[in-house]
Amino acid sequence: MRAVVFHGPYQVSVETVPDPGIEDPGDAIVQVEAAAVCGSDLWTYRGQAAVAPGSRIGHEFLGRVIETGSEVTGLDIGDWVVAPFRYSDGECSFCREGLSSSCLDGGFWSREVVDAGQGELVRVPHASATLVKLSSDGSAPPIERIPDLLALADVMPTGLHGVRNAGVQTGDTVVIVGDGAVGQCAIIAARMIGAGRIIVLGGAHPDREEMARANGADAFLSVRGDDAVAAVRELTSDELAKRVVECVGSSGSFDTALSLVRPGGTVGYVGLPHGVNVDLARLFRGNISISGGMCPARDYLPELLPLVDSGELRPGVVFSYFGTLENAPEAYRQMDRRETVKALLRPGNPVTSR
């Protein structure tokens, strides 16, 4: 089969690798019909993650079940499914509590298992608990809904996770730090919850500002640091925001998020942290709370999938690059240069933009 392989900083290629097979009775093999490049994949692409050269890459995919182990239940050959970005057994204490991202026997694609999402086939451990059918009968979705459904693998649940951890309620003013796919999905989630005003901090990229406003942002600020604080103070009559969502994970973005939250407020964080150190005295002085972490995406899927099915939720708008799996190196280059927000890749003919 063909798969994307990481070879070192700024080096990914599409290569022929061994097909996966059933290794455990709870496994299933999924033929990937659509995969995504995530902003967190860029940490690996830039050589800023502990990923060894020669590893597969990618953790967002949907496709068809083509083989199952003897203990797999609830899935049939041919079912269309979406996979959350981490597999889980559905049985441990954390899974029962709705925290599948901390599953005691769970893992990540290309780490605890060899296969990853940006490939033609993936072996899925704990398939019965991990995979979610895209319809009650497992039938193929309309092609125009594939981007919306693929966004449920990670970025849409993660954006919602950040908004909920920030405690956003109807009428609240919320500041979202980050204009990537997770930040865009946080905008969608905040609007869905009923936020009164949504302020977004991003870069000087007109396409991202246009997307943010289309998703429900009331203001888009291309400033950072002290300038960002001054701009938000002006928009909030010097009060700053009670709810802030951090969607980047860098030291600078986290520092900005903490500078934008008013005393008694909460920062919901879902950006994969790199080099972030939090000053507890700073939180203490302002009675500031921080809440968040790795999204338990599997636990959000039963809630979000019906909203996509009904057309109420359209998170696929975050995709701005559409290509085939063989286009993966170019997709990575464009995302690294912030020339596109998020890439969708399909074996064979690509999905077209809507």
Rank of each mutant, 00 (worst) to 15 (best):
V65Y: 05
F85V: 00
S40Y: 06
S88G: 13
P25H: 09
S55D: 10
V51F: 11
F61E: 03
E60F: 12
T73D: 11
I66P: 08
T73H: 09
Y87T: 03
T44F: 07
T44H: 10
R86I: 01
T68Y: 10
R86V: 03
I66L: 12
W43Y: 14
G47F: 13
S88K: 05
V65I: 14
F61M: 09
V17C: 07
H59K: 05
V37T: 03
V12E: 03
D79Y: 03
D76S: 13
D27P: 06
V51T: 14
V72P: 01
I57Y: 13
V65P: 07
L62M: 07
F61K: 04
P53M: 05
A83Y: 01
D89V: 02
A52G: 08
I77R: 02
I66D: 02
G69A: 12
T44K: 08
S55E: 09
T44W: 11
A35S: 15
P53Q: 11
G54V: 12
V72F: 03
E71N: 10
V51M: 12
S70P: 07
E33S: 10
E23R: 15
T44R: 11
A28N: 05
T16A: 15
E67N: 12
W43P: 02
I22E: 01
V30N: 02
D19T: 08
S70K: 11
A83F: 00
E60C: 04
V37Y: 05
Q48W: 14
S70Y: 05
E60G: 06
E23C: 14
E33N: 08
V32A: 05
E23P: 05
E60S: 07
S13Q: 08
A36C: 10
V30K: 09
G39V: 10
A34S: 06
R56L: 14
V72M: 02
V32Q: 05
S40F: 10
D19F: 09
P18C: 12
V81R: 01
Q48R: 15
R86F: 05
E67M: 07
V82A: 03
D41V: 06
R86Q: 03
V37W: 10
G58H: 12
